[in-house]
């Protein structure tokens, strides 16, 4: 079976700087995969290439959601990539602050809806049914992530941890095959991190969504990921199971520096 996400020789250059250098990368269906590396290693750039924010300089990105044959998604706009089944969250929270929590998730459902201008004005039965359904669906997603008590709050008024969860809820609204989480545990305390840990595993098990996460919190990475990729200076320096990564001399060197130096 084809991997759900695969990149071949992915390279992204900004002028003379090569932020992502020839990365071959693979996420299989149903896996939780982590991408780690020191600050400035090119993790977020990699994310942005995959989700269409940047068009990669060279190389290929293929996705194969729901056991379909792989499709090349280089250079597609972010909204098209999302339609193909990739959803993401952001490192620095980017919620729609002045919309309610429910509406944030409803925006996530946007691509699953059809009604247009005339539907909005004349409100035929199809549109009304669709609206009812999206409200209920969004509410269900919020309930699943334990956010239902905030349903009518403005997103900006939520506590930090809840905002992080809302970002995930919003991404889940798009019904992705693969969820990309950019530092979901940033700024969370150990208790919140633990809850997040359980939540991510639950999303994978219950909703059958594969997960790719960038994370600095090693306890989270080591406890939930099945496979870890390590990048440094844009290059992939190691890949393997958490135990293998812990022993890998290149990884230790990247994080702690050379012993001889």
């Amino acid at each position: 079976m084809a991997p759900i996400l695969e990149t071949k020789n992915l390279t992204m250059q900004f002028g003379g700087l090569t932020a992502v250098d020839n990365i071959n990368f693979k996420v299989n269906s149903g896996e939780i995969v982590a991408l780690i590396g020191p600050n400035g290693a090119g993790k977020t750039t990699f994310f942005n290439c995959v989700t269409g924010v940047y068009t990669p300089t060279s190389g290929d990105i293929f996705i194969a959601p729901n056991k379909t044959s792989p499709q090349r998604i280089n250079g597609l706009k972010p909204n098209k990539v999302t339609e193909k089944g990739l959803a993401r969250t952001f490192q620095n929270i980017r919620l729609f602050q002045n919309m309610t929590v429910l509406e944030n998730v409803m925006i996530g459902r946007h691509i699953k809806l059809k009604s247009g201008l005339l539907g909005a004005i004349f409100r035929p039965k199809a549109t009304m049914d669709e609206e009812q359904k999206v409200i209920q669906d969004s509410y269900d997603i919020l309930t699943e992530l334990g956010l239902e008590q905030y349903v009518n709050e403005l997103a900006k008024n939520l506590p930090y941890g809840a905002q992080r969860r809302l970002e995930i809820a919003r991404a889940m609204g798009t019904e992705p095959a693969l969820l990309l989480l950019d530092e979901p545990a940033a700024g969370m305390n150990p208790q919140e991190t633990k809850e997040l840990d359980e939540m991510i595993v639950k999303i994978r098990d219950v909703n059958k969504i594969s997960i790719l996460l960038i994370e600095h919190d090693m306890s989270l990475v080591m406890s939930i990921s099945e496979k870890i990729f390590v990048v440094d200076y844009g290059k992939l320096i190691a890949e393997g199971s958490p135990d293998e990564i812990k022993q890998n001399p290149d990884v230790i060197k990247a994080y702690l520096g050379d012993e001889d130096a």
């Binding site: 909204n79 002045n98 539907g119 549109t127």
Partner: peptide
């Protein structure tokens, strides 16, 4: 008309665009 647009799928997309262009694009809004 404006009242109906405001709380429709289209109106929500506009508001999301106002709030955060990059995020709304990543959520599938054209």
């Amino acid at each position: 008309v404006v009242r109906r647009l405001e709380n429709s799928r289209m109106g929500r997309a506009w508001i999301a665009m106002r709030e955060d262009e990059i995020a709304s694009e990543s959520m599938g809004i054209d």
